[in-house]
Amino acid sequence: MQVKIGEKIKELRKVTGRKQEDLATALGVTPQAISRWEANGGYPDMEMIPSIANYFHISIDELFGYNNDRNRIIQEYNDKAQWLINNNDDMTECIALMRRGLEEFPDRVDFKTKLAFALHKQGWKNKGKEPNIFWEEAAKLYEKLLPHDQSCIIPLLSVYSCLGKYEKAEQKASEQPDLELCRQVLLGNLGSIGSINDEKRAEQYRGDAVLELLHAFQKSLDEAIVCNNELNNSREGLELLLLTRQLFDKIVGTECHGFHSDLCFIDMRCVKIANNIGDHKVAMDCFDSAFEQYIKFEQWKIKQFKRWEERNNKSINDENNDEHFTSSLLKSVNPSGHKVIVCEPSFLVKTATSFPEKEKKLITEDPKYACIFEQ
């Protein structure tokens, strides 16, 4: 990158309403020197750089324009890697991309996480080969990431299972904290027993705990039902999921802030069970609901991307985030502090295959659902 520090100084001076004489006086140089810098006729002495950065209340990296350039490159790596993950079965290009990214930015946890995911996915293309070098490397990466990101425990256990390391998976799972000892629950308990003086903050912690436990409950119930042949093929299983959906809907409220994906996944499971028991009308209603939640999730995702652009282009602080849940229970919870499950159109397409041919044809030919089949 060509460094044009003079242009940056000029830009900062005009934005802050300073004259060349003001900056010259502060730095102990002549206004003519400032003019030369701004015309790219020369550069400030290196020992003067910290003083210039301090004058404009920015970092030296920002003065040289490195921050924006660095953030842009990192975002480009992440965006391209995510696109490759979402749109390709072969992860060769994604793996190479993330390796290049880590050569340039060795400490990026998000790059390591995407590399591990790509390796995990690529391992399925080499299933049966011994050793499976992709799964082996993914396991090592997830093991290193686990202390920094507890969510890595889930893919790590999956990779262990893929490698046939069942005892290791069970041991690693048993080493994790009890549900009552997770961060959100502990902070929520502090708020409940009066250990936090700030009531609003205590209310936020209690809401965080409820939301995380609700999310975990939904996932656990789904897995319990899908692995139980009796529930997966009975109205009892369907009713359990529908009750869970009502509870989730009631607690979260009308503004779900990305948790539309949880509702979408519940609806999709309901579709499959309803089709298993031959209640295709309920299945169609649930599919329509799943589609609506998917659309809301996509709208939320676009809004989040716009907010990211605003934060990077206008230095908007996350503290000014005006997003909030509409339910009384979660009104103090900051939605941006919670991870959400990504909902992809391919999930809905796969769900549609559970219908008999007649209903499947109605779905695939309905213009309303065209967007998911065009991906």
Rank of each mutant, 00 (worst) to 15 (best):
I5T: 02
L12M: 02
V15H: 11
T16L: 06
G17R: 14
R18P: 07
E21G: 09
E21R: 13
A26P: 00
W37F: 03
M46G: 10
E47A: 13
P50F: 02
S51C: 12
Y55V: 02
F56Q: 01
H57P: 01
E62M: 08
F64K: 05
F64Q: 03
N67M: 10
I74M: 07
I74G: 02
W83L: 09
L84H: 04
I85D: 06
N88G: 06
N88S: 10
D89T: 14
A96V: 06
A96R: 11
R99M: 08
G101R: 00
L102T: 00
E103Y: 07
E104T: 12
D107Q: 07
A118Y: 00
A118E: 00
K121N: 12
W124A: 11
E130I: 12
K140H: 13
K144T: 15
Q150W: 06
I153F: 02
S161I: 13
L163T: 03
K165V: 05
A169C: 00
A173R: 05
P177S: 02
L186K: 06
I193R: 14
I193V: 12
G194K: 00
S195Y: 12
N197V: 08
R206W: 04
D208G: 06
D208V: 01
L221F: 07
I225N: 03
V226G: 08
V226T: 15
N232Q: 13
L243H: 13
T244L: 15
L247P: 11
D249S: 12
K250E: 10
I251N: 01
T254N: 11
H260G: 09
H260Y: 15
S261A: 14
R269P: 05
C270L: 05
V271W: 04
A274L: 04
H280W: 08
D285K: 05
D285T: 09
D288A: 10
S289M: 08
Y294G: 02
I295E: 15
Q299K: 14
R307W: 08
E309F: 06
N320H: 11
F325M: 00
K331Y: 02
K331H: 04
S332R: 03
P335D: 00
G337M: 10
I341L: 10
V342W: 06
S346F: 14
S346M: 07
F347G: 07
F347N: 10
K358H: 10
E359W: 04
K360G: 04
K360S: 07
K361V: 12
K361E: 15
